[in-house]
């Protein structure tokens, strides 16, 4: 896809989303749409570090929940507008990414992964003990009736998420085709050889960790308004971590389109399973899909499509 076409598509998507929103009167559509977009954003964010550089982050929930709780705290203090909260949530999670990264990225990737897993646990303990944002009993957030652009607040949240998701995908695509993208691929394939080829591996890994963490924090910032009641077990739900890993792996980790496909597919599957089977079963489906894809089709749907095409030639 050429640059012009990509940007035209992105813009068109935002406009279509907005137009559809104007026509739709059913609130459920916005709730469902928000959820899909949130996962597109999270999966894309995860993929910048996990897919491009090959560093597995199990702590999505930590970065995401941090964004959400920064939002809760700032909203309680000053009642700031949503875009400011999003920036603040992004900055906070980006800083955590920087700290984590600078402490653990010198070691093999496995150790970084274990540290992110532990990060999710420690940050949940911190939030559980932070009474100002509700501690263990959770926080109620008053969702305004109307959005600043007219329409309901949920509609506003939906548009905000739409813009963020499209922007994140655009960012991922830009990285993928840049010098940084080649550097990250080299790191994923062979870090020693990357370093010998002049790639500043530590710096690039940090960059990817911060970018990824920032986007996750931004994704979390509107969450309190979306759910209206936030407590640690729901903000740190393991489902976030599993989904954000499963989506790129199912879609394909090498390119920007993979996480998008994976996010759409898995959210639809889960929404369907939730209605038709049970909520426990839908998590099982995600787990099985993830393990199934990594064992049988390591390059995800994108890889399958590509090999089909090449096979036909």
């Amino acid at each position: 896809m050429s640059n012009l076409r990509f940007w035209a598509c992105g813009l068109l998507l935002v406009l279509t989303g907005w137009l559809l929103g104007r026509l739709v009167s059913n609130e459920y559509a916005f709730f469902a749409g928000y959820s899909v977009l949130q996962y597109i954003l999270l999966a894309t964010a995860w993929n910048i570090l996990g897919g491009y550089a090959g560093y597995v982050n199990f702590g999505t929930a930590a970065f995401f929940a941090l964004g959400a709780y920064v939002s809760v705290a700032l909203n309680k203090m000053y009642a700031l507008p949503l875009p400011v909260l999003i920036v603040a949530g992004g900055v906070a999670s980006g800083l955590v990414g920087l700290l984590m990264g600078s402490l653990t990225l010198k070691l093999r990737g496995v150790f970084f992964s274990i540290a992110t897993l532990a990060l999710a646990i420690v940050s949940q303990a911190v939030i559980t003990n932070w009474e100002y944002v509700g501690g263990a009993s959770g926080a109620y957030v008053l969702r305004p009736r109307m959005g600043p652009l007219g329409g309901s607040y949920i509609e506003y949240l939906f548009y905000t998420m739409l813009v963020m998701a499209v922007a994140a995908v655009a960012l991922a695509r830009t990285i993928e085709r840049s010098k940084v993208g080649y550097g990250l691929s080299a790191i994923r394939d062979d870090e020693l050889a990357a370093e010998a080829s002049g790639v500043p591996t530590l710096k690039l890994k940090l960059l990817a960790t911060v970018a990824s963490g920032t986007l996750m924090g931004m994704a979390g910032a509107p969450l309190p308004f979306y759910v209206a009641y936030l407590d640690p077990p729901s903000a740190f739900n393991l489902a976030y971590a599993v989904n954000t890993i499963a989506m790129p792996l199912v879609g394909g980790t090498g390119t920007w389109i993979g996480p998008v496909l994976g996010a759409i597919l898995l959210t639809v599957v889960q929404e369907t399973a939730m209605v038709t089977i049970s909520s426990a079963a839908n998590l099982l489906i995600v787990g099985l899909l993830m393990v199934g894809f990594i064992t049988l089709a390591p390059n995800g749907i994108v890889g399958m499509v590509r090999s089909l095409r090449e096979g036909r030639k």
């Binding site: 090959g54 597995v56 199990f58 393991l238 599993v242 993830m290 064992t295």
Partner: peptide
């Protein structure tokens, strides 16, 4: 390493469910 880690994470999750 990426796939391996994700694999075990998936096994963890599946076992639990």
């Amino acid at each position: 390493p990426l796939q391996g880690l994700a694999f075990f994470f998936g096994i963890l999750f599946i076992t639990e469910v």
